[in-house]
Simulated assay, not measured.
Amino acid sequence: MGPIRAEIAALELSGITRVAAGALGDPEVIPLWFGESDIVTPSFIRTAAQRALDEGRTFYNYPRGVLPLREALSRYHQRLYGLELHPDRITVPGSTMLSVVIALQCLASRGDEVILIGPYWPNVRQACIVQGAVHVDVRLLEGPQRWHLDLDAVRAAITPRTKAIYVNSPSNPTGWVMSGAEQLALLELCREHGLGLIADEVYHRNVLTGPDPAPSFLELAGEDEPVFVLNGFSKAWAMTGWRLGWMVHPKSLVTSMAVLAECNNTGAAIFAQYGGIAALEEGEGFVAEFTARCRRNADLVMERLGRHPRVRLLRPEGAFYAFPRIEGVTDSLALARRVLAEAKVGIAAGYTFGDGNESHVRLCFAISTERLDEALGRLIGVLDRLE
């Protein structure tokens, strides 16, 4: 390959895309593989973006995000958490995934180690590889009643090359929600070892068994600590295709973030940002309705799938995924492909979410209850036929 970096040449599709790629658009498939619902973005959000287009908001703007959106985000954090966040600490570079990339660019150089609290979304691992960083997996403990963090295992994974820890709560794929005490313990560990922290809180409004919103590291971290809190519009407001997210970063990085946003993406689409303002200011009713749907669907998954004799499933506390362990399964990719072929249901293979997940699969239960019920019936039919 000549000058092409070996890490880039060796990249492989995630276990989600490897299953989904050949069946996208098939009307017979019930798609539970991606992290989205079947709800179109609410009309009041679409209308705000359309209005911005009609007003001619189609030009370049400040790469960290238009000021009205960053001010709306400041008010949003005040409303949710009682926090006074200056708009200078908020950057809207594009998608939330881009925020992951930028946070890694800030913290990790080639050969540095980044601890990933797993199971985790596979694109985070890929982003580490692209950056040239070494990912070190530390898996949550499973059970008996919930997933939980083994802080001693995290501590044991820290070496002189460790630069940062990544954690996602509420968690994709497990549904684990960190308590405030767990967050403080992890933050104190980072402080003790001089580590950066990347806190992915994109499911902060998708809470199934506790108070809304989920606890945030923003309630604990100082304004100039090396803590990057990542968030976005995709999950709470059904805006997955808009590629619009935000990050709260150390106060000292205002200029650096403008440069990074400009280099990576030249900023988020301007008219989309006005849709984001509408979501923040008018979207509480939708958030409540969508969360109620996900709670009903979580109950359905526990009732139908959770009772299957081959399934071990902890009730998700947040997000909108089930991550069951299927007893006797050692090749999750093969199982996902079989479910697609035999049942026309799209699920994600567990191996792609990090070490120790080969017996798991992930399914998204954010779709309509009726379609979910049909999908579960088809999936259970395949599980009944496993040898």
Rank of each mutant, 00 (worst) to 15 (best):
L187R: 08
P211M: 14
D150I: 01
D200S: 11
D137G: 06
L187S: 09
K163E: 04
H148Q: 10
V167P: 04
C190L: 06
D200Y: 07
S179Y: 14
L184R: 15
G194C: 05
L141Y: 05
N206F: 03
P170S: 09
T162R: 01
A164G: 10
Q183A: 11
R139T: 14
V167K: 04
L189P: 08
R161G: 06
P144G: 03
P160V: 12
P160Y: 11
P173I: 11
E142M: 14
S169T: 14
K163T: 07
R191P: 05
D200Q: 06
A181E: 12
D212A: 08
V154N: 00
S179H: 12
V207I: 12
L197E: 01
L195N: 02
N206D: 09
Q183N: 10
Q145P: 07
D152R: 13
E192P: 00
V167T: 11
A157D: 01
L140P: 05
W176V: 14
W147F: 13
W176C: 13
L186T: 05
V202Y: 02
P211E: 15
R191L: 05
A156C: 04
L140D: 03
E182G: 08
H135C: 10
N172C: 14
V177W: 12
R205E: 15
P213Q: 07
R205A: 15
R205H: 15
A181D: 13
T174E: 02
L149N: 02
L189D: 07
T174C: 08
A181R: 15
G196T: 05
L151Y: 02
I158H: 08
M178P: 15
R161S: 09
A164K: 03
G175N: 08
R139F: 07
G175S: 08
G210H: 10
L208Y: 03
Y203W: 08
P144V: 06
E142D: 13
A156R: 05
Q145A: 11
P211Q: 15
L186K: 03
A185R: 14
L208E: 00
D200T: 12
E192C: 00
P211H: 15
L149M: 06
H148V: 10
R146H: 03
N206I: 09
T159Q: 04
H148L: 09
G210T: 10
L140A: 04
H135G: 07
T174V: 10
P144D: 03
P144K: 04
P160G: 09
H193S: 08
P170Y: 12
G194N: 04
M178R: 15
I198G: 01
N206H: 05
L149F: 03
H148D: 09
R205V: 15
L189S: 05
T174D: 01
C190V: 10
A199W: 12
A153H: 00
M178D: 09
L187M: 12
P173S: 10
H148N: 11
T174A: 10
R139E: 13
G180Y: 14
V202C: 04
N206L: 07
R146V: 01
A157K: 00
N206K: 10
L195I: 09
V167Q: 03
C190I: 11
G143E: 01
L208G: 02
N206A: 12
K163V: 07
D200P: 10
P173M: 10
W176G: 14
E192N: 00
L186S: 01
I158V: 11
N172L: 13
V207Q: 12
T159V: 09
V177L: 10
W176M: 13
P173N: 11
I165D: 00
D212E: 13
I158Y: 05
D212T: 14
H193W: 12
